[in-house]
Design a protein around this nucleic acid. Structure first.
Lengths: 304, 304
DNA sequence: ATCATTATGCTCAATTTGAGCATATAGAGA
DNA sequence: TCTCTATATGCTCAAATTGAGCATAATGAT
């Protein structure tokens, strides 16, 4: 209790955005450094008023990118280095409006392919992976239960928000290169479906961010931070879908959104589509709270 | 970016529990130090494996209390002191089972009287307070909207989880002693309804904890961490009520709980009551995820 | 003109929620 | 013992929400 450790304090930024430009359907992207194996991070600067401000300041300087809503994620500490020194890392998540600059960003689901359940294809590689996980934990009651819950087995539903739990189970199974116990040969069986690794615990931080944003879009109007001022209901729905990693029922989604008067009509239309032009809507801040955007899911077939 | 600040890193623990012993109805309590104006806190120790473990270790040593589920809340940083030194405070919330040791604990709602809407009495002092808040912000569009949302005015519903927002609005209005802009004379108008102050930003941390636990009990089985192994459905309901700060409809609450098979019957009964003895139930871990305990609310009359 | 494609309006059954009535089982007091 | 009060528990019913799908509208492409 008497020995105060000296700490190096570092800020880490997970900047999320929707890439609406390159692909036809918007994709969830994250700003990375190096070979896409880390996030912008740097020491806590002296002379800044608040942590949040400090973070915004150097991320905007570093990347030239203007950040939207910013939120603290989690604080980690390394073990001490033998001289009583520890490193403390405070991680933040920031949302950014999409822009042309995003070409160099990385797709979030490149790191967590199993989290993107929008296409049927995911099902296919997920099934053997989950089967393997189950057999691996079959001797451990506690782990078996965690596995069932996290991967939606045995009558449980797949829960979007359990990103961190799923990541940790894969880690514990030694299937991820970052894990000390990595079993490369076993992992090779699932080549391509285990995603890209990152340095330090950055992939874990990304998992935390994905959990957080998925929880946040359900009960707050956070999606609108990703969208332009005017948008079609399809754009809104696809933004929700790429964030949640699952498909939604189109007509019901509209009903849900309109019924809460979350958005208001403009008298503009989007002429770029092939079919009937879609009306443009605008976020209606007046009724922003008590927003519920989770419903209108399309049921997923059970995994096993 | 080049100047690394030296940081003192401190851990702060908000330990919550239900006091089922003193009062007839369980009350939400928190472990405090001194005159009830602070939380146990201490420097991050060298030689501990993880932050979480470090926290548990010294809280259990300090208080002799065994902690249940522990969760990181938020990390704050003081402004630097002029020598390039900053203090970083990492706050944690921990849940504890009730015990006889809790006599010395403080009621959470002593710090936030406006958050306890279980009794009609709260309505009475809340109405003039909110009216005052509204007139205070009437010249500021942004604040007026925040106020409406936070205090459930103008058609908005009261949202349990906006504890931090409400605290910050009261702070900004200069009604709280901790605020630099405190206007004691104006605050005196609402004597007794503005709650007890705490040192540093500890009351703000408590607000964060209350927000967090209220969010958590809705979608996770966190309530059960407060309850004994066997409990009656009334105990469960009252635990939810004191945490959420609002009443629930009894029959519907039972239906909600039983329908999800969150609990399983025992063949024991609680004989201590006056009327028909209540059956004792037990938490059913098997179906723990996808738990939804938020429904069955009794509607509150609008504030203004 | 016809077709493919997307947007949008509408229906209908199943489920969930909000509210309240009715009955069951205990202790306390006449 | 009988009655009253207090609590637990079972059940009903209407309103609201949700899940799913059909039908129509408005555009570009062939």
């Amino acid at each position: 209790m008497n020995e105060t450790a000296h700490c190096r304090t570092e800020l880490v930024a997970v900047v999320l955005g929707l890439d609406t430009i390159a692909a036809k359907e918007p994709q969830l992207c994250v700003l990375t450094t190096g070979e896409g194996d880390g996030f912008p991070s740097g020491p806590l600067q002296a002379g800044q008023a608040s942590l949040q401000r400090s973070l915004r300041h150097w991320v905007e300087n570093l990347t030239g990118f203007r950040l939207g809503h910013t939120e603290q994620l989690y604080t980690f500490a390394d073990a001490e280095d033998g001289f009583g020194n520890r490193a403390v890392r405070i991680s933040y998540m920031a949302l950014a409006r999409s822009s042309a600059e995003m070409a160099s960003w990385q797709s979030v689901y490149a790191y967590f392919p199993w989290e993107d359940r929008r296409s049927e294809a995911t099902q296919e590689f997920l099934i053997p992976l989950v089967r393997h996980m189950k057999s691996w934990v079959s001797d451990n009651e506690r782990r078996l239960s965690r596995c069932s819950v996290a991967f939606g087995l045995d009558g449980h539903e797949w829960n979007d928000e359990l990103v961190l739990d799923r990541y940790e189970l894969l880690w514990e199974a030694g299937l991820l290169p970052e894990a000390g116990s990595w079993e490369g040969s076993r992992a090779a069986l699932f080549a391509g479906s285990l995603g890209r690794a990152m340095k330090h615990d950055h992939r874990r931080i990304l998992a935390t961010a994905l959990s957080r944003i998925r929880a946040k879009i359900r009960y707050t109007p956070a999606v609108f931070d990703f969208l332009p001022e005017d948008f079609t209901l399809l754009q809104l729905q696809q933004a929700m879908e790429t964030l949640a990693g699952r498909r939604m029922h189109k007509q019901n989604f509209r009903r849900l959104v309109q019924h809460q008067s979350l958005v208001e009509e403009t008298d503009l239309f989007d002429p770029s589509g092939q079919g009937r032009p879609a009306r443009l809507y605008r976020f209606c801040k007046a009724s922003s709270q008590n927003c519920y955007l989770a419903g209108a899911k399309l049921p997923l077939p059970p995994l096993v």
